[in-house]
Computed example of a mutant assay.
Amino acid sequence: MTLNELPGTYNIIGCNQDKDGIAYKGTLELALDAHNRIEARWLINDSQEQLGTGFFKDNILVINFNYKGDDAMIYKGVVVYKCITKDLLDGFWSEKHGNPLYLGEERCYRVNTQQQQQLIN
């Protein structure tokens, strides 16, 4: 896989970094900046926007992200995705102030792909 194959929109399914692993859905948009660094934008449960920047090597995508919580505090973390195919990313994440006993998990399906159709059916 190459860096230029990453940009696009992905539907995501994940679970939070806590004992209960509360599930969520959303979208992830990946783009490249002028220096070929990854720019990411998540929209979680149609309400929470998260932004990040990252890098790609050996089919591993690493993104540092941040967002403003409901309490107006800024939260930061890192997500690591293994690029299974150009249309499927499998990842885990952790926030700075999250529960250190757990990791969040996330799977991303490029919009309008066979994998996404199989997920729906």
Rank of each mutant, 00 (worst) to 15 (best):
M1D: 10
M1C: 06
T2E: 15
T2P: 01
N4P: 09
L6T: 11
T9H: 06
Y10T: 08
I13N: 04
G14W: 00
Q17T: 01
Q17I: 04
K19A: 05
D20M: 04
I22R: 11
A23F: 13
Y24D: 00
G26Y: 00
G26K: 03
T27Q: 11
L28P: 00
E29N: 09
L30N: 07
A31T: 12
A31W: 07
A31L: 12
D33C: 10
D33L: 13
H35T: 15
N36E: 05
R37N: 11
I38D: 04
L43H: 06
I44S: 00
D46K: 12
S47N: 15
S47M: 10
Q48S: 13
G52Y: 03
F55A: 10
D58N: 14
D58A: 15
N59M: 06
N59L: 11
I60L: 08
L61C: 03
L61W: 05
L61R: 06
V62Y: 03
V62N: 10
I63T: 02
I63Q: 03
I63L: 07
N64W: 05
N66W: 06
N66S: 08
N66A: 06
G69A: 14
D71E: 15
A72I: 08
M73P: 07
I74K: 03
G77P: 00
V78E: 06
K86W: 10
K86Q: 15
K86Y: 13
L88W: 12
D90L: 09
W93D: 00
W93Y: 09
S94I: 04
E95Q: 03
H97T: 09
G98Q: 07
N99T: 04
L101R: 01
Y102V: 00
L103I: 03
L103E: 08
E105L: 07
E106A: 15
R107A: 06
Y109G: 02
R110S: 10
V111H: 02
V111S: 06
N112I: 06
T113R: 12
Q114V: 08
Q115P: 11
Q115K: 13
Q115L: 08
Q116D: 15
Q116I: 08
Q118I: 09
Q118V: 02
L119G: 05
I120Y: 07
I120K: 05
I120R: 04
I120W: 11
N121Y: 05
